[in-house]
Amino acid sequence: MAKPRPLSEIPDEELMLELQAGREEAFNEIVNRYKDYSVRFCYRFVRDFELSEDISQEGFIRLYKYRDKYQITAKFITLLSKILMNLCLDEFRKRKSYSTLELDAMPEGGMDKLNAHNLLSDDSSPDPEQEYYTKELGGKIKQILNTLSPRYRTVLILRQFHGYSYKEIAEIMGASLNEVKIWIHRARNQLKQKFNSQLKAV
């Protein structure tokens, strides 16, 4: 009898089929491959580590429950991202807002001080100044993202932070390519205007 293929050599989509067929260890392999991705994916939505772990856990449970219905119609990562995205959006709805930082005024020097290249000037040793500006900038960005509608916020997170193409975003969000294009540009336009007005206010 032929030995089963090592799980590490099986593509994601086939692992789901193995799981469907009763090979439970396939799920362990999926979790091993995607646990870090899942936590980071959720973190980019909620910006809270513990919450992103909880949502990821729930995402894997949902995936497990879904195993019998699974069909290879899209990439596995699209399915997982879709599950996680929906859970994050549920969380937004529950909380209404996901901004947790207290937002102070912009630091002296305004936008110049919040230049991302300054923030990354020393990768190995984040100094207090760098941390301060990261926090300041993060607070500002979160505040502005928070004012966008969930749909616009989602497309921006998927495009800007995860780097998904418009086509991939359309698959994850279950929307048409044209809708995604319009949403991304509108979201970015709103973001730009809000950034400008925030800076003018400072």
């Binding site: 646990k35 870090d36 899942s38 936590v39 980071r40 973190y43 980019r44 910006r47 580590f49 992103s52 772990e53 990821s56 991302a116 290249h117 923030l119 990354l120 990261t134 900038l137 993060g138 960005i141 800007q160 932070f161």
Partner: peptide
């Protein structure tokens, strides 16, 4: 993008 990179540093399960 760069803020996100900084903020996500070390984020893993």
């Amino acid at each position: 993008r760069l803020w996100d990179e900084l903020d996500c540093r070390g984020i893993r399960a």
